[in-house]
Design a protein around this nucleic acid. Structure first.
Lengths: 336, 336
DNA sequence: CTGTTAGCGCCTTCAA
DNA sequence: TTGAAGGCGCTAACAG
């Protein structure tokens, strides 16, 4: 470890003024070739790196993008972060991460820290978007783009998936195959994303003329184990069903395992669609029919939108809904 | 969006000097209750947040920790980042992330950027640790802790798993169960981590008096598909084996599926151990016997070690090897 | 208890 | 082509 060195020191060693060193480093303004060489020499010898804090303070630009997220686990969120870094590093920005673990106080805290750090914009991921969020965000001195949640506010821009629609489409797919007895396993009731999927599911059924009993809508915590237990319970209670729409693929795998352990065959006895398509879906036996969408694109689109706002200064409302695709695999089958 | 406001402005509005505002905000130095109230009032009204860049420039402290990582995907790395944030946020530090996608030039670039940003320390994750890394790190003006790789250098501290030993133990476990015909599927030959596992595997066999042919050591890219294809190939070529040690659980799942698709039964015909234990291991049928270790602990231990160096100024060499555990599940069985 | 002032390291006119 | 000097927003003595 050697010591930090500053511009004054470099200037002294090179026998020039700090202004000249600055010109060399930033390659602006004219500098005689010989003095440039000399300065570059000193820079190399000392390992000098300009203190960006000082530069940023002077320039009033930090090139910092903040990401506030409720989790960095799972397959989705890391992918979205990868998409984000991909876009912003290309343009010379750096990423500051704030993890909230889903706690609202931490969201607030990170917005404050980021404001203090003078980030130039924030990408915000949360499990549900509330009026409180709107108030906080509108008072912030930098643009914010919300990811995953429609903001339902003509001021705050967002990028999200069309969960209502793809849940509807998955359900219709099985309706078209002749299924009539459905079960839906969603995430926690506090998850706005899961609720939108549930709505899409319900709408597909009711608009096809079916009604559904309460026991056919179940809320679990997205884990494989929860999917397993919930399905075991259904079997034990003798609820008749031939089709399952499951909010994520982890719970879907749990359901497949539970049914198989109970002596059922998939897809012969029950067809299953996961509204989420991670590595698990392809690895399972049978492989899982699932709705696929790209978290990496979510990150990319969000970052592009945010950078656009930052660089153009135009913070008008805009939003983007990302595409999805139904991947047909082994867990679904015609029903006669 | 409202404008950024600075300390001078707040002081003016409150009719005091900036020093007093500073005292209030940092809660140091004495301030009369009435003027404190007044200043707090103005702060609330204006939404003032001190510009941390300026503060940090003055204090020469950034409270910034950099993480340089070759990937943020998969189950391991996000967990280690979670462990890191958990520790550092507790102590008031923030996390700056640099993603290298495994490219060496990007590693170098991020070290430079971080140096410019005046991070106070860096946690460095890479696929293999070289002499070049040592040279770069030793010239840096802040402490670095390497994660995942033993540095083999009495100067650069690290936290890692004991891959050699757990691969050895997994192999011995199956040897003890009577297996004699082994296959090892490792990661890419460029992966230092995978090579250490391979060495552990080989050592267990040779020190038990067995030799092994080349075709029994295979290198793939860690994906489920690669594990599947490699195993299919083995079956087709008629290589006889009853035990597999596989570097990660993704490839292990691929192997299980391939064997089952070829009409074999697990664990009756073949026993399989994955040297890695993610959600996949428990979800598979049969569930996968695997070596479990905690990436979250890796992050925590690394962060603790780094913060300790930063705060104590003591940058002496130290290292930590994390524990592991063999989780016995359904993919392994006695062989008579 | 409060205000004044000298930095922190760099960029950017403005002169020379 | 170069240097001098002011300013970015804040902290930390040092006076009062």
């Amino acid at each position: 470890m050697r010591e930090d060195i500053n511009i004054t020191e470099v200037a002294r060693k090179a026998g020039v003024s700090i202004a000249t060193v600055s010109r060399v480093f930033n390659n602006n303004g004219p500098v005689k070739e010989s003095t440039r060489k000399k300065i570059e020499q000193v820079i190399k010898e000392t390992g000098y790196r300009p203190n960006i804090l000082a530069r940023e303070l002077a320039e009033k630009k930090t090139h910092l993008i903040g990401v506030i997220t409720h989790s960095i686990l799972g397959e989705g969120l890391p992918n979205s972060i990868k998409g984000i870094t991909h876009v912003i590093e290309e343009k010379g920005y750096n990423l500051l991460i704030g993890n909230t673990d889903g706690q609202i106080e931490k969201e607030q805290k990170h917005f404050e820290i980021f404001q203090s750090k003078r980030v130039e914009g924030v990408l915000f991921m949360t499990r549900h978007f509330t009026q409180e969020h709107r108030d906080v965000i509108e008072a912030l001195p930098f643009p914010v783009v919300v990811l995953l949640q429609p903001t339902e506010d003509e001021k705050i821009s967002y990028v999200a998936f069309d969960e209502y629609r793809f849940a509807q489409e998955a359900t219709r797919y099985l309706l078209d195959k002749g299924h009539e007895d459905f079960v839906f396993i969603g995430g926690p009731e506090t998850s706005a994303n899961s609720l939108r999927r549930e709505q899409g599911f319900k709408n597909a059924l009711t608009s096809a003329g079916y009604s559904l009993d309460k026991e056919r809508i179940i809320h679990e915590d997205y884990s494989i184990e929860a999917g397993y237990e919930a399905t075991k319970r259904l079997v034990k209670e003798g609820v008749p069903f031939t089709a399952m729409i499951i909010a994520n693929d982890g719970m879907a795998i749990g359901a497949i395992n539970a049914l198989q352990d109970s002596g059922y065959s998939i897809p012969r006895d029950v067809s299953i669609i996961g509204l989420d398509d991670t590595a698990l879906a392809k690895a399972s036996r049978p492989s899982l029919t699932a709705i696929h969408y790209s978290y990496q694109d979510l990150g990319k689109e969000g970052a592009n939108l945010l950078l656009d706002k930052i660089e153009s200064g135009n913070v008008d409302f805009s939003y983007k809904v990302l595409p999805y695709e139904l991947k047909k695999r082994g867990s679904t089958e015609e029903r006669y």
